[in-house]
Simulated assay, not measured.
Amino acid sequence: MANEVSVRNLVDAMGLTVLIGKEYLDDKKITTSDISRPGLELTGYFNFYPKERIQLFGMTEHAYANGLTHENRQVVMDQLATDQTPCFVVSNDLDVPLELLEIVKERHIPILISKLTTSRLSSNMVNYLEARLSERQSIHGVLVDIYGLGVMITGDSGVGKSETALELIRRGHRLIADDRVDVFQKDEETLVGEAPAILKHLLEIRGIGIIDIMNLFGAGAVRDDTDISLIIHLENWSPDKQFDRLGNGEEFVKIFDVNLPKISVPVKTGRNLAIIIEVAAMNFRAKTMGYDATKVFEDNLNGLIQTNSKKD
């Protein structure tokens, strides 16, 4: 888990223009995804000023600041610009008050400019910071995008996860992470998975070694991250183990606060795991869209029983 993000990272990710303080971008750190719009502070109310947050100036703050006297702006800007303030961000390509320019030069605080509207800019920054600052959990497995569905393949070491992922890639699907998946919670219902930087776009195949999927199959064969929708757990087949045959048994794995559906697939000589996982993903998507083949089978079976009962 990253507990801070540099202002330079924010500038690069958001495409912001640095008006002042380019030399301080690496030194200034952001530690919270919350954004402050200092409307009350411009009126002189600083009892609960969140000085550790990004200070975002939009049309409202800009208009109110322009209505203040020069002396009042100096007082307010002096209180806004603290040692803990990571940066000031101004939306809509607005002009920056001269009083703020003077004080941030003295205190080495960057001012960043964006052409985006305040709401859009705020939303983009919050989403980016929440992803970068979120708690992360590392899970042993392979994450693949199958028809736009994030499927995490888990199982014991040597069961064939990477080989199965390679076949899925050959079938047109995309690799996100092999061996280790870094997972973080985006919101109350969504988990996102990505590869650690050192493993990005790489796949390990026993007997061959490390292969670069992007180099071998092209940019269309990889993704940086994806929402995780389904876990498929590969298990070595055993006659003592009971596997779901009708598809009416539901399993879930809780990661952070999200319950992910899990399907256990037996691994046995002669089974084409890539096709099975591909079909499992398609069937899962069909269920989320309201079509359940198991229910169709049960309805057909009940209809057949009723028909036979009438004949008797």
Rank of each mutant, 00 (worst) to 15 (best):
A2R: 14
A2E: 13
N3C: 01
R8T: 05
N9Y: 06
D12L: 11
M14H: 01
M14W: 03
T17V: 04
K22L: 01
D27V: 01
K28C: 06
K28I: 03
K29W: 07
S33L: 00
F46P: 10
Y49F: 15
K51W: 07
F57M: 15
E61K: 02
N66Y: 06
G67S: 09
L68V: 02
M77L: 10
D78E: 15
P86S: 05
C87W: 00
S91C: 03
N92L: 02
L94H: 02
D95Y: 07
I103M: 13
K105L: 07
L112A: 08
S114E: 07
L116P: 03
R120Y: 07
S122R: 01
S134H: 08
S138M: 14
H140Q: 12
H140E: 07
L143M: 04
G150D: 01
V159T: 07
E163D: 14
R174I: 02
L175T: 06
A177W: 00
V181P: 06
V183A: 04
V183C: 04
F184S: 14
G193R: 02
H201Q: 11
L203Q: 09
I208A: 12
G220L: 04
A221D: 05
V222T: 13
R223Q: 10
D225I: 00
I228G: 10
I232N: 09
S238P: 07
D240N: 12
F243C: 09
D244K: 06
N248G: 13
E250A: 13
E251C: 00
E251K: 11
I255R: 10
I255W: 08
D257R: 10
D257S: 15
S264W: 00
V267D: 08
I275W: 04
E278G: 09
A281M: 05
A281I: 01
N283Y: 01
T288L: 12
A293H: 11
Q306T: 12
D312C: 10
D312W: 02
D312G: 15
